[in-house]
């Protein structure tokens, strides 16, 4: 059990959760809640793996996965933005639909042999930094490096640019945004689509880079739901989302590694080594931890009186004047 290895793997697994969390975060910032993350991730994972398997090109797989995630999200968009349906139920059905379609189209993919994967490499100079270098910049997937860039970019976009201002306005006070001439419907479609693409990317990161392969619905194992929980913990802030995601990734690796050694910390007799059945309790940890993290996020939101975008989950209906 080496802390560097755990954190290194944490960043890798965290990348997957991070893409999905960022996708959901952007969608929710525009006032639309999409609970179909798990379905979009699975579809992305399946599409990426399937395309990489049949064409031998992992990048093509990645693109198709993003597109597939986006298209599935647009379905949700049509139902909740246009038809003003309940966002919770629509998101749930998106999960079923995405999972079902992935299982149908991914039939037989789990036996696929070697496929082209996305590359992992060291970053020169940065990887030589003590501690941080071997954790963050050595032998990580190219997608992990992409996520390092994406987090500040999304933060800057939301908080410091004009389109980002429009995004926030649409999520907080759509009627005012509309009065300013911002097309609320188009904005929401756009960010639902982008969110879906990021969830597709998360799926592709899973099946083509972080834990390669297609293991039917066990591929994601609830990661999408954890991502939705992390958005709340992150208080809709991309930087906190990154922190939460990498922490979660590390926790998942810790659970695997803690069962290895006979002695913990040099003195403690490792109960997980002597009674492997206790591993079932370790398996609960990521999910229990999500609940704890949600409680922390909610308490903080109540204390600081901040929280979800004000218009989250509410369909926008234009007044008569717009007709």
């Amino acid at each position: 059990m080496d802390l560097i290895i755990i954190l290194h793997a944490g960043v890798a697994t965290g990348t997957v959760i991070l893409f999905a969390t960022l996708g959901e975060l952007i969608t929710e910032r525009s006032g639309v809640m999409n609970l179909g993350v798990e379905g979009m991730m699975l579809l992305g994972a399946m599409a990426a793996f399937g395309i990489a398997n049949s064409t031998g090109n992992a990048w093509l797989g990645l693109l198709v996965a993003m597109f597939a995630g986006g298209v599935l999200a647009i379905l949700h968009g049509i139902v909740v933005i246009q038809f003003r349906a309940d966002q919770v139920v629509s998101g749930l059905s998106l999960t079923f639909l995405g999972t079902g379609v992935s299982l149908v189209l991914g039939e037989g993919l789990s036996d696929a042999g070697g496929v082209a994967l996305l590359p992992a490499f060291d970053i020169p100079l940065l990887s030589a930094i003590p501690v941080i270098g071997p954790i963050m910049f050595a032998n990580q997937s190219i997608l992990t490096y992409l996520s390092y860039l994406l987090v500040p970019m999304i933060w800057y976009y939301i908080n410091r640019t004009r389109p980002g201002l429009h995004l926030r306005a649409v999520g907080e006070y759509p009627a005012a945004a509309d009065a300013l001439g911002i097309n609320v419907f188009r904005q929401r479609y756009l960010y639902v689509f982008i969110g879906g693409m990021l969830c597709g990317l998360a799926g592709a990161a899973l099946s083509l880079a972080i834990s390669p392969g297609w293991f039917s619905d066990k591929t994601t194992a609830g990661l999408g739901w954890i991502a939705i929980g992390l958005v709340i913990f992150a208080q809709w802030n991309p930087i906190r989302a990154a922190l939460g995601s990498f922490l979660f990734g590390a926790l998942r690796r810790l659970i695997l590694d803690i069962q290895g050694p006979m002695v913990l910390f040099g003195v403690l007799r490792n109960p997980f080594f002597y009674d492997p059945y206790l591993g079932f309790f370790l398996q609960m940890l990521p999910y229990a931890f999500t609940i704890i993290v949600l409680v922390i996020g909610s308490r903080e939101a109540m204390r600081k009186r901040l929280g979800a975008p004000a218009a989250l989950g509410i369909p926008y209906v234009r007044g008569e004047r717009g007709a």
Partner: peptide, 22 residues
């Protein structure tokens, strides 16, 4: 076969139901 068909159908049915509510 494939085994995902019932789940897929359930998802499509739920989608159509909430769309029809409009």
């Amino acid at each position: 076969q494939p085994s995902g068909i019932p789940l897929m159908l359930q998802g499509i049915i739920l989608f159509c139901i909430i769309s029809s509510e409009v």
